[in-house]
């Protein structure tokens, strides 16, 4: 399946231990994970520009993921604007929260391998 980049909305900047956030647009950070043939290649945590946006937070978060070339987005819930944009752009969304980045990746691995 090659390399897939996954973007996860997270609550803190703790690499693979960061907690996946219940919300997408307003999460403080975004974890960008490279999966190489299903194995975790590398993780970077970046600030989410949506967190401090006055409006359009979801779109700003989507924009940041696009810059990273992300193909799959993970958060507890996505707002209507973010959801519309992600669907239009063909980015897969996974609704999942309350676990670490590592656990989230374990859980969605089977789903990703279907790609």
């Amino acid at each position: 399946m090659g390399t897939v980049k996954v973007g996860l909305a997270v609550e803190d900047d703790s690499g693979l231990d960061s907690r996946v956030s219940s919300r997408f647009g307003r999460a403080p950070f975004l974890a960008i994970v490279e999966l190489e043939d299903g194995e975790i290649g590398g993780v970077r945590v970046v600030e989410n520009p949506g967190a401090s946006a006055r409006s359009g937070a979801g779109i700003k978060a989507v924009q940041r993921l696009l810059e990273e070339g992300v193909r799959v987005a993970v958060a507890g819930a996505f707002g209507p604007n973010a959801m519309t944009a992600l669907e239009e752009l063909g980015i897969e969304t996974v609704e999942l929260a309350g676990v670490s980045v590592e656990e989230a990746l374990q859980r969605i691995r089977t789903r990703l391998q279907g790609q």
Binding site: A53, R54, S55, A57, L66, N81
Partner: peptide, 10 residues
Amino acid sequence: CDTGAMLISP
């Protein structure tokens, strides 16, 4: 764009 109304696609 301050409101996120302009999305730059890939």
